[in-house]
Write a protein that binds this DNA or RNA. Structure first.
Length: 646
RNA sequence: GGGCCCGUAGCUCAGCCAGGAUAGAGCGCCGGCCUUCGGAGCCGGAGGUCCCGGGUUCAAAUCCCGGCGGGCCCGCCA
């Protein structure tokens, strides 16, 4: 049969049969409408597919009883055994024997590629993700970004598209300048032996930031009268920062003290930092060298964390290169010629007030329903550029470089407004097409119970720490069973558990990261799926030969649990398509978990390779193989490795 | 003040966009199953004002309006 998605095929053929019956008397309903009404019954005893008839008859404007008469002539193809009307629903049942045969043909021909179906049109897609500032290690929030971005990349790839993964290095912002400032004050030492560079620089960054703030607060206090409200507020702020500094001292007292001394000697630390930013942006070689050195070191640390996760990038794009290459200047020139160009308090800006209420623009750019978008300042008065201006240049570069059909930015929900401004800016600069092809894939933060995370204060849980904890946990579990776990296996399980956690809840929801819950390796987790795969794989390995597809006795499908496995397995290509269309990873985790549950229940009650009837045995092997392939391919999309043995 | 997101079992979350049958999982809790292919498993049980109030509908966790609670954003920061 010429399809690679059996489930979608039967849904369509069910809908087609109904549509053919009613289209004569009902012109208001299209075939696609009928398809969209098809649902899965809440319980299997109601069938495999169902149509709510009240709804259809209503849309058609036909009385319910008359509608029933119309539908009573329903004839379905041989993938169905029967249909019936119950409680206002038209329920259809798969003929499990024919259905199993069709599925086995499909899986036999698709093999290990089952579920991955190319789209008709091949797109070139750029996915920008992580893009964490190179000032500290990846924390779990960036970890969520990394896992989501890699997931998106994989979804597009398995649908046959060309994907480029990119990381935007924000080296021109204040953050890197602060770190560089502290690094210079410290006398530009080497990273101490044995420390991960991102970890050490992250510490230095937090110390520098905190001290700079302390020095500033002290200055402000000295100009205020004791007892003022403002004085008290600042005093308590200062107290808090001193507390942070004592925390940081615990890690490396001499470094903190040295830095405190050096920075206190600087009359204007903030000014020095701004001076550094300016010099870097001008491209002064001696300054550029330090910035690149520091950012590069931190990036190398971030990169090793990412490679633990099995995530890599095709390109690193340095923000500073956009300025050095003149692209940012180019954007400013184009902006000056734009009808939307304005001067906002003396600074060059774009004013969106004319078009932001335009419905066609709003829907083209997918702008938030009702949002007041303030003017976008393009350049500081001192001539240095701003983040968003550089982001405009960067967006154009992405489209030009790769001739991309779609650019996805995986960026936190807190930047919704900035991302909307970016699309509007592109639009008003005349890049309407690019603006419409830019997608903000938004996600929520990861919070920790009881802790307010802050990179500036050195309070965060890093991805490395979480992975380390997970690896220890895996080792403990194995040890308690008297098994010495292979390093490779331990890592795959830890990484899987982490990714699953990040992908199993909707990206619009805050993840309350509970370290203890993260260590759970039971059901509804990647380790559970990996375990189930290893189980299936082990059965096939014990059998030791290829499946004899021609010997399969398909009448064995007449059994509720086996039938349910068939139903679920057949749904996999449809699920992958849905995940691709909606870009919702949690659909996949829910589905895979359900499949594993059913398989494990079945596994527990029926022998597979000890089955005496050869035809039945081949059928069971076919089920086992199919479940294995689906779990493997499903986990692949999530970036999780399966294991043949655990 | 305005905007965006979230609110479903003690806890963590699917389901909501495209309304439909008795609202589903996991953790935790209670009770069973280790001489058969891998017990990270299986079987059973308790546990719900789907935040609240209106509205639309034959039908609302789902759509609309108004509240409440939590998070975030509204900068010549990124």
């Amino acid at each position: 049969m010429g399809f690679d998605d059996l489930y979608t095929y039967v849904v369509n053929s069910f809908a087609k049969s109904v549509y053919d019956l009613i289209s004569g008397s009902c012109s208001k309903v299209s075939f696609d409408d009928v398809v969209s009404y098809v649902e899965e019954p809440s319980r299997r005893e109601y069938g495999d597919l169902a149509l709510p008839l009240h709804r259809l008859s209503k849309v058609c404007g036909i009385g319910f009883n008359e509608f029933l008469r119309l539908v009573s002539g329903l004839r379905l193809n041989d993938l169905f055994s029967r249909s019936e009307v119950v409680g206002g629903y038209l329920n259809a049942f798969f003929d499990e024997v024919n259905y199993a045969r069709a599925l086995s043909d499909l899986i036999k021909s698709r093999g290990e590629r089952y579920g991955f179906v190319d789209d008709a049109r091949k797109l070139k897609v750029i996915i920008e993700f992580v893009s964490a500032n190179p000032v500290h290690p990846l924390h779990i929030g960036s970890g969520r970004n990394a896992v989501l971005g890699d997931f998106l990349s994989r979804v597009f790839e398995v649908r046959g598209h060309r994907v480029q993964r990119r990381y935007y290095v924000n080296d021109l912002g204040r953050q890197v300048a602060v770190l560089v400032y502290g690094y210079i004050k410290l006398g530009r030492p080497e990273v101490p032996n044995g420390l991960k560079p991102d970890e050490w620089f992250g510490f230095l960054y937090a110390v520098t930031n905190t001290i700079v703030d302390i020095v500033r607060l002290r200055g402000e206090l000295s100009s205020l009268g004791i007892g003022d409200d403002a004085y008290l507020t600042k005093q308590s702020e200062l107290d808090e920062l001193m507390g942070v500094l004592s925390e940081l001292r615990l890690k490396d007292e001499s470094l903190v003290n040295r830095l405190l001394e050096e920075i206190s000697a600087d009359e204007d630390p903030e000014g020095s930092i701004e001076e550094l930013m300016r010099m870097y942006e001008e491209g002064r070689p001696e300054v550029k060298e330090v910035f690149r050195y520091v950012a590069g070191k931190v990036l190398s640390g971030i990169n090793s964390t990412l490679s633990r996760l099995g995530i890599s990038f095709d390109k690193l794009d340095w923000e500073s290169d956009l300025v050095f290459s003149g692209m940012v200047k180019e954007v400013l020139e184009i902006a000056k010629r734009s009808d939307f160009f304005t001067s906002h308090k003396g600074a060059p800006a774009l004013d969106f007030s004319k078009i932001q209420r335009d419905q066609s623009v709003k829907s083209l750019l997918k702008l938030p329903k009702s949002i007041e978008i303030p003017p976008l300042i393009l350049m500081r008065s001192d001539g240095t550029t701003l983040y968003v201006t550089k982001d405009i240049a960067y967006s154009l570069m992405k489209f030009r470089d790769f001739n991309a059909d779609l650019v996805i930015n995986v960026v936190g929900n807190e930047q919704t407004l900035a991302q909307a401004q970016l699309r509007l800016a592109l639009y008003t600069l005349g890049f309407k097409d690019e603006a419409s092809k830019l997608l903000h894939y938004s996600y929520e933060l990861v919070t920790l119970p009881g802790i307010k995370m802050s990179g500036r204060r050195g309070r965060y849980v890093s991805v490395d720490q979480v992975l380390d904890g997970l690896e220890v946990r895996v080792e403990e579990i194995m040890k308690s069973r008297g098994i010495v776990v292979e390093d490779r296996v331990k890592k795959a399980i830890a990484v899987g558990a982490f990714k699953y956690m990040m992908l199993s809840s909707s990206s619009t929801k805050v993840i309350n990261f509970d370290p203890d819950a993260a260590l759970n390796l039971n059901r509804n987790s990647a380790p559970y799926l990996q375990y189930t795969y290893a189980r299936a794989s082990s059965v096939l390995r014990k059998y030791g030969r290829d499946i004899e597809w021609d010997l399969i006795d398909f009448t064995s499908a007449r059994n509720p649990v086996r039938r349910e496995i068939l139903h679920l397995v057949s749904k996999f290509p449809y699920i992958v398509r849905k995940v691709y269309e909606d870009l919702d990873p949690e659909l996949l985790t829910t589905y895979l978990n359900r499949l594993a549950d059913v398989f494990n229940s079945w596994y527990d009650v029926e022998p597979i390779i000890h089955e005496v009837d050869e035809g039945v045995k081949q059928f069971k092997l076919f089920l086992t193989y199919s479940v294995g392939v689906v779990i493997k391919n499903g986990l692949y999309v999530m970036g999780i490795d399966v294991l043949e043995r655990i």
